[in-house]
Each structure stands twice: as C-alpha cells, then as structure tokens.
Computed example of a mutant assay.
Amino acid sequence: MSEPRLSSLRWRVTVRRHPSAFLLAVQLLSLVLYPLFDEMRGGRVVFGAFGVLALALAVWVVNRSPAIKWIAWLLAVPAFGFSLLSVLFASESLLVLSSALEAAVYFYAAGSLIAYMMSDHRVTSDELFAAGATFTLLAWGFAYVFVVCQAWYPGSFTGALNPGQPRSWLELLSLSFTNLSAVGLGDVIPLGSTARVLVMLEQLAGVGYLAAVVSRLIGLTLLRHERR
C-alpha cells in the first residue's frame, strides 16, 4: 500500500475512533479564526455553515442509527443552504432562519453526545473529548439563539462598546461562553425579558450539564483508577 493511501486510512480510523476529538478540534479552530473574519460581511455565516457540516458528520459517526443520521442531515442541509443564501443576498431574514436551524443542529448534536456519554458505565478517551465538545456545542447553540432573539426583539442585548447597536456574533458567542460556564465575566448583558429568560435557561443548562454529565464522568474515571 502506498504511503498516501496508508496515511488516508490512518486518518479515517482516527476520526472513527475519536469523532468527539475531531469535533472539538474543529470548534476550537473556528473560535481561533473568528477574530480574523469577524469584521467581514458573512464571515460568521461561512464559518457557521462549515460548523454545521462538521457537526452533521460527527453525529453520523457517533450515532450509527439511520434515523438519527436522517434527522441530522434534515437539519444541517437547509441550515447550510440558508447560510450561503443569506451571504449572497445580504438578507437578514435568511440569516435569522439559518441561525435558528443551526441552533437546532447544535442542540441536537449536544443531546446526541450526552446520550452517547450516558449510555454505559465505562469512560473512554473519546467520551472525555465528548465532554469538551458538548460544552462548545451548547455554547454555540445558545449563541445562535441569541442571534435570533436580537433580530426578533431589537435592543435585547447591550454592551460597553456602542451600547445602542446590535451585538456582533462574536460578542454573543462570548456572552454564551461566560454564561454557560457561570464565570460572570463579560461586557454584554441582556435587557429584554426574552433575552433574560434565555440567559437563565442557559445558566440552568450549564449547571445541569456539569452536575449530571461531567461529574459522572469524573466519578467513573476515579472509580476505574481505584479498581486498578
């Protein structure tokens, strides 16, 4: 077997064995690259469309059920299409629609990974990567929800810089991360009733995720080491 084909085979095996690590790496890479494209028109949408495809592939690898694959693609394909159309036609309505669908994809993928981690009492390295990937999925999902909320209810969020202007995608993503992790740091705050409710729901989701999923993985890992 030639070296290129052997390398390709090794890459496919690695992705299949550690799909959660692949997903987490894609999310973190997108996060690092966002500042370079944040000021460009459609930069967030392009990265969002790329993220939707990566999510759909990750869900397909982790969950082998044809029904689950069908649902993932049913959400991902139109989200990808509307994202591209919103860039081509500079349409805010298409951007809101694509954001709603992308939020559904991220929440669906997060739920799939949580079910995957809770399915047995054995902790694998991929499940540890899944714990980190799920956190980023929830943060991205709520950020897209904030985008929809801001479009439907103008003035829902304000910040230290240009308080009267809509918050950028990166600002809403930063709010989502600080809110989900409960660190309480950031210069973006919710003002409207709907925005406040969404923020509270994300706080509840963050606390519940840490208490029910992360603590379980830590406990099972410690138990495994004690048995050894």
Rank of each mutant, 00 (worst) to 15 (best):
E127Y: 08
S65E: 11
R122D: 11
L75G: 11
E202Y: 10
M1Q: 09
L6E: 15
E127Q: 15
A182H: 13
L210R: 03
V32R: 14
R12M: 12
A131M: 07
L24W: 12
V148A: 06
S125V: 13
L217A: 00
L57I: 04
E3M: 11
L223V: 06
Y34T: 14
V148I: 08
V105S: 08
R17V: 06
S174T: 15
A182F: 02
D126G: 13
L33A: 15
D126H: 10
P163I: 08
F82T: 05
L173Q: 02
A182M: 04
P190Q: 13
F47I: 06
L53W: 12
W140Y: 12
F135P: 02
F89N: 09
A109W: 04
P4S: 07
S7C: 11
G48Y: 00
L23R: 01
P4V: 03
V87C: 05
S193A: 15
D120R: 14
A21H: 12
L204I: 12
W140K: 05
L53V: 13
P4W: 01
L201A: 14
L161C: 12
L24E: 04
G132L: 09
S193Q: 15
Y108D: 05
F142T: 11
G192N: 08
F22M: 11
A79T: 10
A90I: 09
S83N: 07
V145E: 11
A195Q: 00
Y209T: 03
E92V: 04
S176M: 00
Y144S: 01
L36N: 08
N162R: 15
L201E: 12
R41M: 13
V59H: 08
L85S: 01
V148T: 05
A72F: 03
